[in-house]
Design a protein around this nucleic acid. Structure first.
Length: 438
DNA sequence: AATAAAAGCAACCGCATGAGG
DNA sequence: CCCTCATGCGGTTGCTTTTAT
């Protein structure tokens, strides 16, 4: 096989990336874009394979990445999406702006799976574990309805717990930040990591990279506010892993002025946009949906009154959008009817509907998030389409929508959408909150 | 304080897919 | 069609850090 021939070549580095390598890669991509990944390492002067460079860029160096711990809303959304999409991390990541599939996958494997198990929910099927153990023999429509109700239950459990946590946090939350409505999280680990870095100058450990990132984005953000070229966003003199990564904040939390240890300030609210960035961002992780997809963990999944064709949701009448495909339902589409197969069917349906709306530009009162949050819509459409027909539609539609969306993102700043500056600003707010306003 | 276990995270590997010759 | 290559995805590994004993 001729695959990954680069990987077999000698003298190629493996393992963790050094700051110097990051700098080289970043410099190269910000200047020229990545183009063909296999040629990137050579052009950038790196002893890495293109695959490694790509991964590093996507998972770490990309400027639109959101750093920091996951919010409860994000966790809930991941659980919701996983229930529908299964282990399709890239698709899940596409719904979480600034998060990578790798990041989400790690979170799921290390944390969320455990959480669900602790609640007696099987993380694979999203059903109660006791129920999973008893192999049931029920028809698929009943299964899907059941699945919806299970998901509703598990989310309600999480919501109940979250509300308790949030109530506690609110009590501890500095009023200045709480009043701004920023989610506040307990981030002991972040705090300790930063402290460690302070005490460990020139630390080259991977953990230092987070601080490196904070510093780089924070300072570059400030310094590039007057320029539009991409290189300006990442002043290379800032690209180091040194100890000046510590952030300080004005004691007045309402101030948007932030400064690093070096005394440089930046404005969180200043616009962080770049025409150049969009040309180098991989479309896969940039959701074609508005970045502010409005995490809506409040799900209630009615399990009855499902009518096909149209249905009432919250008093509004909705029409299924996948009616174009009226293939008769082939039961036994997958003989094993495994959970993974089931997930795939559901996900296909969801995507189809979402893509369909994207293409047909439905009225404002029906948005994909609403659709997603209304399993009635999912379930109803589920009964009218075979997995194969759905899958075929996706195959044809995904590419179109993705392409067109990548062309418009992030230039098209839609009203109310979350910009990168918002993301970073909020993260920094949270970081400061974790610091306890040093 | 020392050690082990657990958690968190970055990166690698292999496979699937699609484009181009 | 077949082959080669580039890319993307998901599973897995292994290292580092944190926490518990």
């Amino acid at each position: 096989m001729g695959r990954h021939s680069c990987c077999y070549k000698q003298k190629l580095r493996k393992g963790l990336w050094s700051p110097e390598e990051d700098e080289k890669l970043l410099r190269h991509i910000t200047k020229y874009g990545h183009g063909c990944w296999s040629s990137v390492p050579k052009q950038a002067g790196l002893q890495r394979c293109g695959k490694s460079c790509r991964l590093r860029w996507i998972n770490y160096l990309r400027p639109d990445l959101k750093r920091g711990t996951f919010s409860q809303e994000e966790e809930n959304l991941i659980i919701e999406l996983h229930a529908v999409l299964g282990n399709r991390w890239s698709q899940i990541a596409a719904q979480l702006p600034g998060r990578t599939d790798n990041e989400i996958k790690n979170l799921w494997n290390s944390c969320l799976k455990k959480k669900l198990r602790q609640r007696g929910i099987d993380p694979v099927t999203h059903k109660p574990i006791s129920e999973v153990e008893n192999v049931e023999d029920i028809d698929t429509s009943a299964k899907s309805r059941d699945k919806m109700s299970v998901l509703s239950n598990e989310l309600n459990l999480l919501k109940a717990e979250n509300s308790n946590q949030e109530a506690t946090l609110l009590e501890q939350r500095p009023s200045s930040i709480a009043s701004q409505g920023y989610p506040l999280e307990v981030q002991g680990s972040s705090s300790s990591k930063i402290t460690n870095n302070n005490n460990n100058n020139n630390s080259m450990t991977p953990r230092a990279n987070k601080d490196f990132f904070q510093e780089r984005f924070v300072t570059s953000h400030q310094e590039s506010s007057t320029t539009n070229d991409l290189v300006g966003h990442y002043p290379l003199q800032q690209l180091n892993y040194a100890s000046n990564a510590r952030l300080q904040t004005n004691s007045n939390s309402n101030s948007n002025q932030w400064f690093t240890q070096t005394g440089k300030t930046f404005d969180i609210n200043s616009e962080y946009t770049s025409n150049a960035i969009s040309t180098i961002l991989p479309p896969s992780t940039s959701s074609f949906l508005p970045p502010s997809i409005g995490y809506k963990p409040s799900l209630t999944f009615p399990t009855d009154n499902i009518s096909i064709g149209s249905f009432n949701v919250n008093g509004s009448r909705y029409w299924e959008t996948t009616s174009a495909s009226t293939t008769t339902n082939n039961s036994n589409s997958s003989s094993g009817s495994s959970s993974s197969a089931e997930l795939q069917h559901n996900s296909s349906l969801l995507e189809t509907s979402m893509f369909s709306w994207g293409l047909e530009s439905q009225p404002e009162d029906i948005k994909w998030t609403e659709y997603f949050n209304n399993p009635l819509l999912v379930a109803a459409a589920l009964q009218n389409q075979t997995p194969q027909s759905i899958y075929n539609e996706i195959k044809s539609e995904t590419q179109f929508v993705t392409e067109s969306s990548s062309a418009m993102w992030p230039h098209t700043k839609q009203p109310g959408t979350l910009q990168s500056s918002d993301i970073y600003g909020k993260d920094i707010q949270r970081l400061t909150a974790a610091f306890g306003h040093t």
